[in-house]
Amino acid sequence: MEWLTAEEQAAWRAFLQATYLLEDHLDRQLQRDAGMPHVYYALLSTLSETPGRSMRMTELAERVKITRSRLSHAVSRLEGNGWLRRESCPSDRRGQIAVLTDAGYDKVVETAPGHVQAVRGAIFDRLSAEQTAQLGEIARIIAEGLHGPDGTDVPWLR
């Protein structure tokens, strides 16, 4: 086994610290401004960008990278707010489809500007255009390595 070099170790630790801090920053912003954690916003925004604003629950869990049980809990909460509803899957009796309601779509539209501002302030306002391009390239390379070169699990790579 080859250990990380001192430079690799420093880069790895900086990457971890930045990702932890970013997730915490976005979670706090969304809790404060929209009354929901970041993962709930990710579910709503993902559905807002899909045809029919709906997706099979298993696919949604995979897309947002959460367990099915965590997704079920989140969907129950989002249903309680009137932002989502579950429907039976017509092609599979055991399957369910998560559907973004009009109220849920309105919540995404209402929440998006503050979220974009938080992302911009935390990342893009601090980077040059060249660094932004490098960040995108590095993130794509890492994602491709984790999901395979065809990017089937990563729709934004296609």
Rank of each mutant, 00 (worst) to 15 (best):
N81T: 14
M55Y: 05
Y40N: 07
V39H: 12
T111P: 02
G95K: 01
A98L: 00
P37I: 00
Q9A: 04
E137L: 13
V108F: 07
A42Q: 09
G104H: 03
F124G: 07
L146F: 00
L44N: 01
R140H: 12
R56T: 11
L146S: 03
M36P: 15
P51K: 05
R56D: 07
T58Q: 05
R63Q: 08
I66D: 01
P149K: 06
G80V: 09
D33Y: 13
E110N: 11
A122G: 07
S72C: 05
I123C: 09
E49F: 12
Q29F: 07
S91T: 11
T19H: 05
V108D: 00
A10F: 03
R28M: 12
H73N: 02
Q96G: 00
P149Q: 06
R158V: 03
H38D: 15
S91P: 00
Y20C: 07
E144S: 11
G121Q: 04
A139F: 09
G80I: 00
Q117M: 10
A133S: 09
M57P: 01
V116L: 07
L78W: 00
V154K: 15
Q31F: 04
S69F: 10
A61M: 00
R32C: 06
V109P: 14
R93S: 09
E59L: 05
T152P: 10
A103K: 01
R13W: 04
E23H: 09
L157Y: 09
G104M: 03
D33A: 15
A112G: 14
A122N: 07
A34M: 03
G82M: 07
L22I: 00
D92Y: 00
T132E: 13
H115N: 01
E62N: 08
E130M: 12
R68K: 02
D106Q: 13
E8L: 15
R85W: 06
I66C: 11
T19Y: 11
E144R: 14
A10V: 02
D33P: 08
G136E: 08
S48R: 05
S76T: 06
T46S: 13
M36D: 03
G136L: 14
L47P: 02
S69N: 13
R77Y: 03
S76Y: 10
H147S: 13
R63C: 02
V64R: 01
G104P: 08
S54K: 14
